[in-house]
């Protein structure tokens, strides 16, 4: 990212693309960044990209920060920095698409980032355990950890143009009396984020391609996984202890997803699509289902 490498700064202008899943606060993060930049007297723009998905599925947002008026109204295709609120999004989307050489990547994850998943360009990588911080600071919405504030905190480590106190002020105004936990998470992430410089080979820039399609009748065919492998939406994994299970079928009938199957006289969870809502755990009369924090290898 220009500015990061403290090279010559001719055109002060940054484009940031945020990736995450619904419910994680991607759009809010984009807004907080823009509002904070604005408070620092920059021109700023925050664009949400709403897919048609619900909580849990991949979403995108874009933030532009500039010293000059911003005339673009389009999405960001060649970002200076990508913020990844959830590493699972990397499995369904090319989150690094168009990222500029020397750009920045902020990832919220508790595991190590292997080099293979990163693009072949030189970049500044910032890693923060957003979920861990959210759980520790009790930042939950509808039971899901909210990782947007930790990611902003981590981003601020490498983006000197917005002061953390400015962001604190923006968060306090935005969330009012509920802002305390967010502010704590912000500082915790800022302090614990790990910054790495990575040197890669230059690679050709890919452009977004549109699928060709001739539509005659707007009708769709039934398919399992219309929203992708929704198993990746999981933060917690339900696990059946078969020694306690009586096959009462309460988990089966109540699974909102239909991800519990009746097979040969027992219930089986389809982890490809189970979103990890844990309704099954709550309706099990024998406490035969427990939950584990999900770690995708």
């Amino acid at each position: 990212m220009r500015g990061l490498d403290e090279e010559s700064i001719e055109e002060l202008r940054w484009e940031i693309r945020l990736h995450g899943r619904g419910g994680q606060g991607v759009v809010t993060a984009s807004k907080i960044l823009a509002e904070s930049a604005f408070a620092e007297r920059y021109h700023a723009q925050s664009i949400p990209f709403f897919g048609a998905e619900r909580r849990g599925s991949p979403v995108m947002a874009f933030t532009r920060i500039s010293e000059h008026e911003i005339r673009e109204r389009s999405q960001i295709y060649t970002p200076d920095c990508v913020l990844i609120l959830d590493p699972l999004v990397m499995r369904v989307l090319d989150v690094f698409n168009g990222l500029k050489d020397g750009g920045g990547v902020v990832i919220s994850t508790s595991s190590r980032i292997s080099d293979e998943i990163l693009p072949d360009i030189s970049l500044t990588l910032v890693v923060v355990d957003g979920v861990g911080i959210a759980l520790k600071k009790d930042l939950l919405v509808a039971g899901n950890p909210v990782v947007n504030i930790p990611v902003i905190g981590a981003f601020l480590r490498v983006f000197p143009h917005i002061g953390i106190e400015t962001v604190e002020k923006v968060i306090s105004e935005k969330f009012k009396r509920n802002s305390k936990r967010s502010v704590k998470a912000l500082y915790s992430a800022y302090e614990s984020a790990e910054v790495l410089k990575i040197r890669g080979k230059k690679r050709a820039e890919k452009v977004y391609s549109k699928k060709p399609g001739k539509i005659w009748i707007p009708a769709s065919k039934p398919v399992v996984g219309v929203a992708g492998k929704t198993g990746y939406w999981r933060d917690f994994r339900p696990v059946i202890n078969y020694s306690r299970c009586t096959n009462c079928l309460n988990c089966w009938i109540h699974c909102p997803e239909g991800s519990i199957r009746r097979e040969n006289g027992e219930v089986v969870i389809d982890y490809d699509y189970c979103k990890g809502c844990l309704v099954c755990l709550s309706v099990c009369p024998r406490r035969a289902i427990s939950s584990e924090r999900e770690v995708f290898a």
């Binding site: 005659w216 707007p218 039934p222």
Partner: peptide
């Protein structure tokens, strides 16, 4: 052109994202 077909069901008019809508 479109039929209610119980053996070969389809969903008419569901969400059509930007990737397809302009072509439609």
């Amino acid at each position: 052109a479109w039929r209610v077909d119980f053996d070969n069901p389809s969903t008419h008019g569901n969400i059509t994202p930007p990737d397809y809508f302009m072509d439609l």
